[in-house]
Design a protein around this nucleic acid. Structure first.
Length: 110
DNA sequence: CCAATGACTACAA
DNA sequence: GTTGTAGCCATTG
């Protein structure tokens, strides 16, 4: 409870849950939104643990290049891509087309 | 406690 | 635009 590490995870999940349908965001944006801009890497780690939750759209989180770097952590090979395509996002070569157009930036939380 | 790992990012060449 | 290096921080061994 309220351990500093757990708190970080909860903050990440809180932001990821707010990603609107058909939109995506980056690890850095999430880290920045929770006031841990330098912990972008740890955000990805939190995503790895998000598999135990069913309300964390981790497929909407990509790196700053719009590349599905985390697709290897999904059960299937193209699961993440199919999920994005199901939301109207074009994905080619593990990369989001018009990434900037689908990009959604979370609000800064203090 | 120390070393290694990783779903990242920024900067230099 | 691509490639390499460094910084960052929570988790694991």
């Amino acid at each position: 409870m309220a351990n500093s590490s757990t708190d970080f995870f909860l903050k990440v999940y809180d932001v990821v849950r707010e990603i609107p349908y058909g939109k995506v965001t980056t690890y850095g944006a999430i880290a920045k939104a929770i006031g841990e801009a330098k912990s972008a890497r740890t955000v990805g780690y939190a995503m790895n643990a998000s598999h135990q939750f069913d309300d964390i759209p981790a497929h909407r989180v990509v790196n700053r290049n719009g590349v599905l770097t985390g697709k290897h952590h999904f059960p299937g090979t193209y699961v993440m891509q199919q999920m994005l395509e199901a939301e109207g996002i074009e994905v080619v070569d593990d990369k989001i087309i018009n990434f900037k157009t689908h990009l959604w930036e979370p609000e800064i939380r203090l």
